[in-house]
Write a protein that binds this DNA or RNA. Structure first.
Lengths: 316, 316
DNA sequence: GGATCAGTATAACAGATTGTTATGAAGATC
DNA sequence: GATCTTCATAACAATCTGTTATACTGATCC
């Protein structure tokens, strides 16, 4: 015998509240609606649910058993409602964010932690990738947003991107690097040191090649490659090697005092760090919150960098 | 945001079954109904529940979360349906049976155990009482049926009673009682032995008084009273005392060979053992099953007694 | 016992929802 | 690109939901 689930919930409310009127109020509806629902339920199951002629309305043992199941449903219904509410407010859900390894590790991971101080029920699923993969993942709805350097003149097809940081690379080395003793190292000198390559596929790798060639290198000599940010940093810490890195990444590492940038100006790439999102599919509210959080995080980072440069002088 | 619980269940069915068509079949309804329900649900919560344009229909993480709650409801709904079915079939529920102590202990308790071999999910709540209490309890819907000796001419007001055993008392004693050596003890001899009184309030007590007076006793001398059936039996086992008992109770004790009946005919009380039920209020199916079981139990007991008496000769 | 009160059932009706069948659209598959 | 499966839409009847107004009926209080 199939029972109307709503009736069960109503029964549960009445039993829980101890009366038809109170039960109706509990569910936010009028007493006659409840009264009728109970009649219908009783008629359909064909067994008495309430003891007749008792004024403090009393359920039969059968009615009580039924009401227990209704109570389960009522609880589930409330949880579902809460879920919907919190999802719509962006307070729960999943944010799938993809990005290039250096930015993810150096900056976004920290942003995620900070974001979850105000959004503890939002889960972040992070993944790595470069522009082509990220774009594909976005379109295939495998990620909700990407944080990634992108060519400024790049055209978006169904994707929206929002610049969050100008492209700017620096040459990174350990803080004890001998070149730091010089006020302005010459390009030729830079080639005397071992170089570390950014991950394959990274735009930084192309930047590094171009840079070294512009320094007069006839061939690119790489001593270490394939490492993630942590690998590269630990290599740099242990050797007088050099590498190319986004300025913001080195900036984020300044607290540790282990890695710094050489006072050498190198060309800006024609790229900017951007947040990519789909324009067609709607994003979950939590995703929008997260994207805004990341955007404002980079905004303050930019101001921080500006103030920092007014005090400390790098590269000039 | 309040969500229609039915929609949640439908969502759960679709997610569980892996498709709209299968989900609809799972709930026994047509595919368009399901399709529309999902649209409505999605429209109301305002967030996508399914990924668009994927043919093996795929729910969003949000949709999956919602569906989990729906699954809880679906399970509860099924349990409730099963409960209703088994209750209507009399396979579950509660039977509240009241009765006089001797019959309950000697016969009904065993019937309960036997009944539950075929009705394991029916709970029996037993209570003791005599006719006035039982009648009141029945009318107050505190018990569902009563097993109790009742005056044959008693009129039922809102109560139905069904005779299940003719009233017949015997004088009970232990199997080693000296009077059993005599072929036909005289009433005077009986008065030489100590007597045990049935519980106060019991019709048997009045029977005992009348019996002893008819034997020529000038006053009723009782050596032990107030015991339940077990107490009385254990007293009898330990002394050459006598008491009055329903024949069927002594008969039920015959297997133990400790207690038996004196070969003395005493007057039948104008009573019969009967099952009392309300006629106004409907009884739970399990109660009807139980009553029928008890009735047929006594029916076979009657036949058993008859066959027994054709073989063994008591009281003549 | 009866007057009163609170809680429950019933009536009547508008609007929403559910179910159905028939049919159109669209991703998957080969 | 033909075909197939699956899902969405249309149209309509039946049911159900919710409402307000009102009648009943145990309970309670002199």
């Amino acid at each position: 015998m199939k029972i109307d689930e709503r009736h069960l919930i109503q029964l549960a409310a009445v039993v829980k509240a101890g009366g038809v009127t109170e039960g109706a109020a509990l569910l936010g509806l009028a007493q006659p609606a409840m009264s009728r629902a109970l009649s219908m339920l009783e008629k359909r199951v064909g067994e008495p649910i309430f003891v007749k002629g008792r004024r403090p309305l009393q359920a039969t043992p059968f009615g009580l058993s039924l009401a227990e199941h209704g109570l389960v449903m009522l609880a589930a219904s409330r949880k579902a409602s809460d879920l919907v509410d919190s999802f719509r407010m962006g307070r729960s859900g999943v944010v799938r964010v993809g990005g290039t390894p250096f930015f993810m590790d150096a900056l976004i991971a920290q942003f995620c932690a900070e974001f979850q101080q105000t959004h503890p029920d939002v889960r972040v699923e992070q993944s790595y990738g470069y522009l082509p993969d990220l774009r594909a993942a976005l379109k295939a709805d495998q990620i909700d947003l990407a944080v990634c350097p992108i060519d400024i003149l790049e055209e978006g097809s169904g994707l929206e991107f929002q610049q969050i940081l100008p492209g700017r690379n620096v040459i990174a080395c350990r803080s004890t690097h001998p070149l730091l003793m010089k006020r302005r190292p010459r390009p030729g000198e830079l080639l005397d040191y071992p170089w570390v390559a950014p991950p394959p596929g990274s735009p930084l790798l192309a930047d590094l090649r171009a840079l070294l060639l512009s320094f007069g290198a006839t061939e690119i000599k790489i001593r270490y490659s394939g490492g993630s940010l942590m690998g590269v940093i630990n290599y740099l810490k242990a050797a007088d090697a050099l590498t190319i890195m986004p300025h913001s990444v080195v900036f984020a590492l300044r607290k540790e005092k282990a890695i710094t940038a050489l006072p050498v100006n190198i060309p800006h790439p024609e790229r900017a760090l951007a947040i990519l999102t789909r324009t067609d599919a709607p994003r979950a509210p939590a995703v929008d919150h997260f994207a805004e959080f990341v955007r404002s995080g980079f905004e303050s980072l930019r101001h921080l960098i500006k103030r920092h440069e007014e005090a400390v002088v790098w590269g000039n």
